[in-house]
Design a protein around this nucleic acid. Structure first.
Lengths: 244, 244
DNA sequence: CGGGGGTTTGACGAACGTCAATCGGGGTGG
DNA sequence: CCACCCCGATTGACGTTCGTCAAACCCCCG
């Protein structure tokens, strides 16, 4: 496990630093600067809208804890979730800033977010090329996840979709130190999974039951336990995203 | 019909200029510059790969005529099309440049493409802010279309999906003067439509048959004739994308 | 006048959705 | 500490949408 020994007091910005470090080799100065960002994160309850699709893009933010998502409601109430936002993810920073407007962004759990304007501004400074690269690579990764989402929903079965999504989330959470090879948190209701995967709640439940029966994975009390990642990889055709 | 009277000789870059003009108010100098870009467009046959997802992003390009798409093959041969690329669209220019790597880009018809490096370079020049805006807005639109695609595939029926996609394409083609309220070109086989909409070819055929029977639209010899756009809008929940 | 790729159709089956009831577990108030 | 409660998970029965297979058809082109 790639667990970095942090100072005595756990830093709230740890997920952000982990993620950006994984995307580009940050200089100690930037890391120091990011660490000190820990200025009064705001907390919001589940269901809180960080951004409405009808309104202008919201201010830049960093998600420090909890989960959120981008989503859209059809006029008859059907919902489609486009992407999940997990700790360490940036919202509206860098090239992604203007692109990602025009979707709802909603908290799925209690969340804490940091004002991202400091990060946003630091990105533009010429003395931090690595930070710019990291943010740029983050945008690329987001794109890959979006394309993955389309392929899942368009061309994979419910069983394959579920495996693929869970492996993708495991990959993302491993980056920020929240998951390992055998387990990860998943604070989502089956409703939410259904709206992300283009399925009904009932069918999500049945799909998970099958994974349980086959002893490939298990979801219990907000945690996924992976019993056979390799088998999941095979059935889902998942491959870890590559940059460059 | 918003048909601009062009000079005696039709300009090959007309679709590009129309599209960018619709995205930002270009100065006459830029338009003049873009018009003169008409340097030996390259032509490619259907099936030609402009970019392989396994390789680095290809050089910047502008599609002048014909259709292409971004797509991905699963390891067992299933194909998902992410987005269509139509005349006037830019490939790998501006903020979209680094984002859109990692997908196959394939010609669906005979196409002609322009080297886009001149445009790409002009975008960065400070004396052309409108051009930068236009390219930026183009990226935003592409994002909206990507989100539309996810919603279609994830939460709409085959019937709704088809109507929604066709209206979206009509919207895009109207921008470049290739479509009007009652018809547009659609040089796609039902196979391709199926891979874009996450359906089987047979079901695409049946869906189109239903539209024909209901006298909402008709596809014949590469052209869509719209008989009742308003009805299509209602069933598909399509709304023209808004920037800002 | 044949091909040949794309379209159309029918018969059948599988995957997934809907409806409705039941279960379970974690939080809350007494 | 315990009973209650409520939201989410689970299950069964049934219906619909959509996929698959295979054949026939059509149109364009050589």
């Amino acid at each position: 496990v790639n667990r970095v020994a942090v100072a005595a007091k756990p830093q709230a910005t740890d997920p952000l630093i982990r993620r950006l470090s994984a995307l580009a080799s940050l200089s100690p100065e930037i890391i120091e600067r990011l660490t000190r960002l820990e200025a009064r994160p705001q907390t919001h309850p589940p269901g809180f809208y960080l951004q409405h699709e009808a309104e202008a893009a919201c201010a830049a933010r960093v998600l420090l804890s909890g989960w959120a998502c981008r989503q859209h409601y059809l006029s008859d109430g059907r919902r489609q979730i486009f992407a999940f936002i997990v700790p360490g993810d940036t919202i509206g920073i860098g090239a992604a800033a203007r692109r990602t407007a025009r979707t709802d962004i909603v908290a799925l759990t209690p969340i804490s977010v940091l004002d991202g304007r400091d990060v946003e501004q630091a990105v533009t400074l010429p003395q931090h090329p690595a930070l710019r690269d990291a943010i740029e690579n983050a945008a690329r990764l987001d794109d890959i996840f979006l394309f993955n989402q389309i392929t899942r929903i368009g061309r994979q079965t419910a069983y394959e979709r579920m495996a693929h999504l869970l492996l993708e989330l495991q990959f993302r959470l491993k980056t920020v130190g929240l998951a390992d090879e055998t387990s990860m948190p998943l604070p989502l209701t089956q409703d939410v999974l259904a709206d992300a995967l283009g399925l009904s709640t009932v069918h999500v439940n049945r799909t998970l039951k099958q994974f349980r029966r086959e002893e490939l994975l298990e979801i219990k009390s907000g945690k996924v336990r992976f019993f056979d990642v390799e088998a999941l990889r095979l059935v889902s055709d998942f491959q870890p995203p590559k940059l460059g």
